[in-house]
Design a protein around this nucleic acid. Structure first.
Lengths: 193, 193
DNA sequence: CGAGGCCTTGACCGCGGTCAATGCCCGTGG
DNA sequence: CCACGGGCATTGACCGCGGTCAAGGCCTCG
């Protein structure tokens, strides 16, 4: 085999916290590999979030549709994890969907089984919460930027801190990710001679 | 005794996850009670966050000062916890301070000792991560609002979802909390006949 | 070769930012 | 007890950015 998605997922966990052998194999047995094609809806809006996804190849975005406008809330490139945090822990329903941006493959981890595995494998639980921590900090920084910076400055920051996104994501999604319209983003780009 | 701040803090933990007797007493021994007066700086900017605060009475805000402008990032009323999440886990320095908004009393929990107690008291660790979870979800929702709503709509939401803030926090801080200037907030308020 | 999606450009408008002045309430000190 | 001062909220005038609506060009895919 050339590339094992599940193994990559286990490695990603181990990169967060040293997971022991038993925890790793438990995790490995949970993972379900699943292919995705561009435009496909991985998880539709209106359902509780019962699955944590590891993006082995390709990319996805999480988005909502308040009053008919498509707003992308976050973008996950290969190597990252995707889930709708508001719903992850309490299984509340959430009006957000997960959509595939580029063909690729996912590893799906059912949260019920994952959380159950925490009882027997504390390092696994620790790794998971490291993931939440990391994401929590990212949310704080993103909020800080959107709260204090102008649209033009936010775009400049994006170029500076996550330029890879430009290679993978159409501008209209980056626009709503920045909290502005596609037209504004276009003008901002034109303005920076 | 009429009111024990440390005990209130322990109860707050137990409200998040059932902490056993041993964990509760361990927590109780960590807490340091400390009074605060309005305007006082609890934690100055530029330091790593080594303390988790429980606000027993009064209220505080977390704020930063990018290019000289005071931006309040979050407001914690009595019964809540306050810490600068970006720095909590990795002890990185952070340009944010904690300031007292109303006279009151805090319970200070040194993070090093708290994290150390997790090794022996798993329920305590669980309760703490429930706290992080809850806060994580709040960040997501706040980001969502600021990303998709206009300033006027954000103020309407604030009135709707956390009207208590108006009783405790001066408008200039609410303005920066909403990501707008005090003048704009004033006009928005005037506009809603 | 045609159709549709995406990015761009244009014109117009209104909201919110900025700077400045006024009024109000409070605590402080004479 | 009153006078003063400072911080906070408000109001006004002005301007520019970003939102909205509409049209045009380009690429990709069927």
């Amino acid at each position: 085999m050339t590339f094992d998605p599940v193994h990559a997922c286990v490695l990603a966990f181990q990169g967060l916290y040293p997971v022991d052998q038993a925890g790793s194999t438990a995790l490995e047995q949970l993972g379900r590999v699943q292919a995705m094609v561009r435009g496909e809806t991985i998880q539709p809006a209106g359902q509780p979030c019962r699955t944590l996804y590891f993006v082995a190849e390709g990319s996805v975005r999480i988005h909502s549709m308040p009053d008919g406008h498509d707003v992308t809330e976050r973008i996950v490139l290969a190597g990252g994890f995707a889930a709708r945090g508001e719903s992850l822990f309490d299984q509340s329903t959430v009006d957000k969907g997960i959509e595939c941006l580029e063909d690729g493959v996912l590893v799906a981890l059912p949260t019920s089984a994952l959380f159950a595995a925490f009882e027997a494998h504390r390092p696994l639980e620790r790794a998971f919460y490291k993931m939440v921590e990391r994401d929590y900090v990212r949310q704080i920084k993103r909020l800080e930027r959107i709260q204090t910076l102008s649209p033009a400055e936010r775009y400049a920051r994006l170029l500076d801190e996550e330029p890879e996104l430009l290679q993978h994501v159409p501008l209209k999604h980056l626009a709503s990710y920045l909290g502005i319209t596609p037209e504004s983003l276009s003008r901002i780009r034109a303005r920076r001679t």
